[in-house]
């Protein structure tokens, strides 16, 4: 599968916009990404190993968090994963 890397995380993937990895589930794909680019670990996951709350992962056009099997969703070689940090804020508390 192909994993699309957002601008701020390309510093940890040798500036690559996308990375091709092997894996049969979303979890396996992300694990393969971290294996190839270990610095991604701390940016994607908490110390407890959970996906950081502000990191969105989309399988093609679907938010993985809302898929029935979530991160254990099966993926094929032609699928695309997109990592996209959230964007939010506001003018006052």
């Amino acid at each position: 599968m192909t994993i699309n890397i957002p601008t701020p995380l390309r510093a940890y993937t040798d500036k690559k916009e996308s990375v091709s990895v092997e894996g049969t589930t979303v979890t396996e794909g992300l694990a393969a990404l971290v294996a190839a680019h270990p610095a991604m670990q701390q940016h994607l996951f908490t110390p407890e190993g959970k996906l950081r709350s502000f990191v969105n992962v989309y399988l093609n056009d679907d938010d993985v968090r809302y898929l029935p099997a979530k991160e254990e969703t099966a993926v094929s070689a032609t699928d695309e994963l997109t990592i996209i940090p959230s964007i939010a804020g506001g003018c006052c508390r």
Partner: peptide, 25 residues
């Protein structure tokens, strides 16, 4: 990214900072 602060200064807020994750942007 851009956003507006209606009737507030053009300064980042604690919320803006807490929710900022796009380094180098």
């Amino acid at each position: 990214f851009y956003h507006s602060h209606p009737d507030h200064p053009a300064q980042w807020s604690p919320t803006d900072f807490a929710e900022a994750h796009w380094f180098g942007c």
